[in-house]
């Protein structure tokens, strides 16, 4: 998987987890939904960690995991390069 394919996976799992979050906000006792939420968040965290290790931080404090400060590196999310 190349950089943007990996990022797309991160985006997909992040979105799926967030959609589950909203469902749980109004159905906090739904155990099945909670299990799905846990799986989605776990997968998201794993994919995000893999992406960051290879390509750099997706959030500011992740920049602390690198040898030098690489938070400012392009592209930024509104730029086409981050969305191809």
């Amino acid at each position: 998987m190349n950089k943007n394919e990996m990022l797309y996976k991160v985006q997909q799992y992040n979105f799926a987890a967030y959609d589950m979050l909203l469902y749980l906000d109004t159905h906090p006792d739904d155990r099945k939904a909670f299990r799905m939420f846990r799986q989605l968040v776990e997968k998201y965290k794993k994919l995000k960690a893999e992406y960051e290790e290879k390509f750099g931080p997706l959030e500011a404090y992740s920049a602390a995991d690198f040898d030098s400060f690489n938070w400012l590196k392009s592209p930024w999310p509104w730029e086409r390069m981050a969305n191809v």
Partner: peptide, 16 residues
């Protein structure tokens, strides 16, 4: 303002 800033320093600083 971030969207039209020309370099990574200003994009990053305005974001943060």
């Amino acid at each position: 303002q971030r969207y039209t800033m020309p370099d990574d320093v200003t994009k990053g600083l305005l974001t943060d």
